[in-house]
Structure formats: structure tokens, C-alpha cells
């Protein structure tokens, strides 16, 4: 079987067209099929024993890692949200505290201010009373002095005009004039 057909192959390239299609040279079929079987068995064994389990493991590991990382990221996000909430709470609390402190400080200041104002008012009132008294005194003093001056002047005038300087009538006259 082999001799007739292998002849065609052996004669080589220059006669290839005449002897027919290499694909239809049945003498080479057992050879090709044998080596194909060997190749397929080797590929199958390498794939099933080594390559495919390894790649599958790597892919599974990667998807596991990605899942874990995503979970961790989610956890961190939760933590961040919590931290933000705590921060906001603290901020609100601090704001309240500050407002309270401001209010109490304001109240204190207001109290001090009121006290100071009251004191100042009292002082002012006292001073005013004192001043009034002084003014009254001075007014009274001035009136006396005016009366005195008027009497003296009246007496001098009366004397200069040749009349008798009656102290009693002069006083009465001045008093009447001052009143009038």
C-alpha cells in the first residue's frame, strides 16, 4: 500500500501537479493522523493538567480579590460616612455650646452694663441734686446781695436827694420793688 503512493511524494515537487493534490495523497494519511493524535493528546493533557486549572484559579482568585476589595471599600465608605456624621454632630454640639457661651457672656455684659448704667444714673442724680442745692444757695445769695445793693443804693440816692434815710421804709420799698 505504501510503496505506490509514497512514490508520488518521493519524486518531489516538480511532479506535484501531475501526481495530484498532496491533500489526496492517501499514503501520508496515517502519518498525519498519527501525529495529529499525538498533538491533540499532548495539548489535552497540558491543558487539563496544568494550564486550565491554573488560569481558572487565577481568574477565581482575581474575582475574589476584587470582591474583597469592593467589600473593603464599602466598609471604608461606611466608616467615612460615620466619621462625617460624628464630625457633623460634634460641629453642631460645638455650635450650640458656643451659642450658649455667647448668650451667657452677653447676659453678663448686659448685667454689668445695667449695673454701671444704674450707678451712673444714681451718681448723676446725686450730682444734679447737689448742683441744684448749690444753684439755689447761689440764687439765694445773689438775691440777698441784690437786696443789700439795692438798699444801699436807695439809701445813698435818698441821702443824695436830701431826704432822710429811713431804713425801715427803704427796706419796705426795695422789697416792694423786688417783688414787683
Amino acid at each position: 500500500m505504501a510503496t505506490t503512493a509514497t512514490e508520488a511524494v518521493a519524486t518531489g515537487a516538480e511532479h506535484a501537479e501531475k501526481t495530484g493534490l498532496p491533500q489526496l495523497d492517501f499514503a501520508t494519511f496515517p502519518n498525519q493522523i498519527f501525529w495529529l493524535a499525538v498533538t491533540l493528546v499532548i495539548i489535552y493533557l497540558v491543558l487539563t493538567r496544568v494550564a486550565l486549572p491554573r488560569i481558572g484559579a487565577v481568574l477565581a482568585e482575581r474575582s475574589g480579590t476584587i470582591t474583597n476589595d469592593l467589600a473593603a471599600a464599602e466598609e471604608f465608605k461606611q466608616k467615612a460616612v460615620q466619621a462625617e456624621r460624628a464630625y457633623n454632630d460634634a460641629l453642631t454640639m460645638a455650635r450650640g455650646e458656643a451659642a450658649k457661651i455667647v448668650a451667657s457672656a452677653k447676659a453678663d455684659i448686659q448685667k454689668d452694663l445695667d449695673k454701671a448704667i444704674a450707678k451712673a444714673d444714681a451718681d448723676i442724680a446725686a450730682k444734679a441734686v447737689e448742683s441744684e442745692a448749690k444753684i439755689t444757695e447761689i440764687k439765694a445769695g445773689a438775691l440777698d446781695a441784690i437786696t443789700e445793693v439795692a438798699k444801699d443804693t436807695a439809701r445813698e440816692l435818698v441821702i443824695a436827694l436830701g431826704g432822710k434815710a429811713d431804713a425801715k421804709s427803704i427796706t419796705a420799698a426795695v422789697a416792694a420793688r423786688l417783688k414787683g
Binding site: 505504501a2 509514497t6 518531489g12 506535484a16 499514503a27 501520508t28 496515517p30 498519527f34 501525529w35 495529529l36
Partner: peptide
Amino acid sequence: EQFIVKPLFGGDTIHWYTPTNV
């Protein structure tokens, strides 16, 4: 011509076990 099956190490006959360009 490019499709011709040739033995790798010379020789004429192609047995089922002959190493060829296949």
C-alpha cells in the same frame, strides 16, 4: 507544492511514525 508532506530527515518512505514537516 507547499502542501507536500516531506520526511524531516531525508528518506523516501513515509511510515505512520516518520517525523515529517507535519
